[in-house]
């Protein structure tokens, strides 16, 4: 299904046609589910969150501006739903969480150099798992941006639309996230 067909389906949904939404869900289900999984790291929660995202999109379909890209809008909802969940989980701290009053410093710089050296021989799946683990260790803000940019290949402009933040902020965050991951992955 191409962009135009999606647009047409969305128009039908706006008129109240629920069955048109079935095609929309079918079309995006795998991507949105995967996105939620990458963010939350658990299949059950990913399923629940992706469902929630699709339901919210349906309920709020009238606030979707037809001149925009539907996929961007949908990713935005999925991301918000997932970040809300992550916040509720309240982990003690994230490694890259900024320390108040220490501009530009994060907790990484205060740790001794990486003591979790992976095997030189990490391969395939194990490597993937390791990389994914490192992405998951990022705080939701940086995790989201890395996932959107490198795993889902959105442009910086699209990311700024999905996250509803200025392009400059996207760049700053992505630079920081890349630096963090560089330190974690340089010995892989």
């Amino acid at each position: 299904m191409d962009m135009l067909m999606i647009q047409e389906k969305i128009n039908q949904v706006k008129k109240g046609d629920q069955s048109a939404y079935e095609d929309v869900v079918n079309h995006f289900q795998h991507r949105i589910y995967h996105h939620c999984y990458r963010m939350i790291g658990n299949v059950h929660e990913a399923e629940e969150l992706a469902q929630e995202a699709f339901i919210r999109a349906y309920v709020n379909i009238h606030s979707f501006d037809n001149n925009r890209k539907f996929s961007t809008w949908l990713y935005r909802i999925a991301t918000n739903v997932t970040i809300d969940r992550l916040r509720k989980k309240k982990p003690d701290f994230y490694l890259d969480a900024e320390i108040p009053h220490a501009d530009g410093l994060d907790m990484y710089t205060q740790l001794p150099n990486d003591d979790r050296l992976p095997d030189e021989e990490v391969e395939g799946l194990e490597l993937k798992r390791y990389i994914y683990q490192e992405i998951s260790n990022l705080s939701p803000i940086y995790r989201t941006i890395i996932i959107l940019r490198y795993l889902e290949e959105f442009s910086l402009k699209e990311i700024s639309e999905i996250l509803d933040i200025p392009l400059g902020t996207v760049k700053t965050r992505i630079h920081r996230a890349r630096e963090t991951l560089r330190k974690k992955l340089r010995n892989v």
């Binding site: 795998h30 589910y33 995967h34 399923e47 469902q51 992405i135 991951l181 560089r182 992955l185 340089r186």
Partner: peptide
Amino acid sequence: ELNRTVTLLQTKDEMKAPKDFTKQVL
């Protein structure tokens, strides 16, 4: 290191939603 990090991050993987996902949503 930065270039390598980016290359490592770009590893492709696919994941499918559970079978009755759409039905559940509807």
